[in-house]
Structure formats: C-alpha cells, structure tokens
C-alpha cells in the first residue's frame, strides 16, 4: 500500500538537468555530428536507396539535393522554346536549339556533387556537350580570356576562365541520372562544372558570352570564391570531386 505523496518532499532539479543536458548534447552533436550523420546515412542506406526520393528526403542526413533559387519561383521552359546562345568575342555567334545541342558529340560524367554549404550527393550522372566543343564551333577570338554564363531566371550569372571552361569535365548538361535535367535541377540545360562547388554550375543556362576578363558571378559578388575548386576554396577541405 502506497501512501499519498506530497510535492516538495524531495526536490530534484529536473528542469535544470533537462536544460543543461540538452545544451551539452547539442554542443557534442556539433563536434561529432558529421561522423554520426555519416554513420546514420550508411546504416539507413538499404532503406533510402530503395525508396528513392520518398523517405530519404525526410531524414536529416546526406545524399540529397537541396534546391536553391534566387528568384520568386522555379524557372521553367519547354525544350521546344529553349535556345542556348554563344556570343561575345567569337567568329560565329551561335543560337542552338535543344535538339541541335543534343545532336552534338556528347560527354557523360559521373561525379560527386558538392555544395559549398556542406551537402554532397555521391556519384551523380550528367550527360551533355563539352563547353570546349561549343567554343570550337563558335571560334574564339584571340582577345578572349573568360566566359560569362547567364541563366534564364533573369538574375543568376556565373564565370569561368577560358582555361577552366575548356576542361574535359565542364559541360552544358541536358541529362541527369539517365533522364532529362528537370527544372528543379536547372533544366532543360544547365552548366555543370564537375571540379567546382555547385554554385559554379549555373542552372537554367541560356547564354554563354565570351569576354576579355572574368566578371564575378552572382554569389561571387556576395563573397564566394571565384575559383571554386572543391576542397581548395571557400575555406573548405572536402575531398575533390574531379
């Protein structure tokens, strides 16, 4: 038989313990969280790889794209209306339709996609046309030094030096994981710069302008590094992606 208990007979500072415990756990989580997360992601991979985007999109962890835009809504354009222009310091300015672009020699790249904010998606497949192929087609003038990329979102721009753009892992991508590049991922055509952080891979690519000096792009005007090599810029030490 239990006797009625009154409050206040033994006072345990539970409130303080809960509060301090959470703060302690939180601080520990900041320090070891990245290892815990890798471990959790590995443990859950059998589940998340089967369910695709469904369940895995709800679990905090790595291995998923986060969609960043700088405008009101998601830019989208049917492939029939799509045009990619190559202008500026070139002998023959180009205006390519989606089909013309797809008719050019294609390149497939399978690389990790690394965002400067920390997330990384392993082994993503991209199909597209080398920027160097487009440049050769247009004929670059000797005074050219750099490229400026425009997005049909009307706001975003990016830049590469001519040497960077001619690398064999820099493409105008129209294929993503075996299908088309959806508008979420910057379709119908986006720039994909494999060795650099994601912000260099300008989504919704509409224009390539050949210029005589590097014009810093959207995020570069906001303090991001212009030469955005994965693991060697923006104060980060991620494993290189290409």
């Amino acid at each position: 038989m239990r006797s009625p208990r009154a409050t206040g007979e033994v006072a345990t500072p539970v409130g303080r313990r809960v509060f301090l415990g959470m703060v302690g756990l939180g601080a520990a989580g900041v320090v070891v969280g990245s290892s815990v997360q890798r471990w959790v992601a590995a443990a859950l991979r059998p589940v998340t790889s089967v369910s695709g985007g469904g369940v895995s999109a709800l679990i905090p962890g790595e291995d998923r794209f986060r969609i960043y835009t700088v405008t009101d809504s998601l830019p989208s354009m049917p492939t029939s209306q799509y045009r990619l222009s190559v202008t500026g310091l070139v002998e023959r300015p180009l205006e390519l339709s989606f089909d013309q672009l797809k008719g050019m020699p294609s390149t497939t790249l399978v690389r990790d996609f690394q965002c400067v904010t920390g997330w990384r998606v392993a082994k993503v497949r991209w199909d597209g046309v080398l920027i160097s192929t487009l440049l050769d087609e247009a004929g670059v003038l000797p005074s050219a030094r750099a490229l400026r990329f425009d997005s049909f979102d009307g706001v975003y721009t990016e830049s590469l030096t001519l040497d960077q753009a001619r690398r064999p892992d820099v493409i105008a991508a129209y294929g993503f994981e075996g299908g088309p590049v959806t508008s979420q991922h910057g379709g119908p055509v986006r720039l994909y710069v494999a060795p650099m952080y994601g912000y260099k891979s300008c989504k919704w690519l509409s224009g390539i302008r050949v210029v005589d000096r590097v014009e810093p792009g959207y995020w570069e005007q906001n303090g991001y590094d212009i030469d955005a090599w994965v693991g060697r810029s923006n104060g980060r030490d991620d494993a290189p992606t290409s």
Binding site: G26, V30, V32, G33, S34, P60, G118, D237, D238
Partner: peptide, 17 residues
C-alpha cells in the same frame, strides 16, 4: 571547422524534428 558546420546542421535538423 567544416565538420562543425555539418554537425551543427545535423543537430539543428534532428532537434527541429
């Protein structure tokens, strides 16, 4: 350090849930 940013994101996401 980078790993702190990842760790902080992880804690922020989990606690938010």
């Amino acid at each position: 350090p980078d790993s702190w940013r990842t760790g902080a994101t992880f804690v922020h996401d989990v606690l938010a849930t």
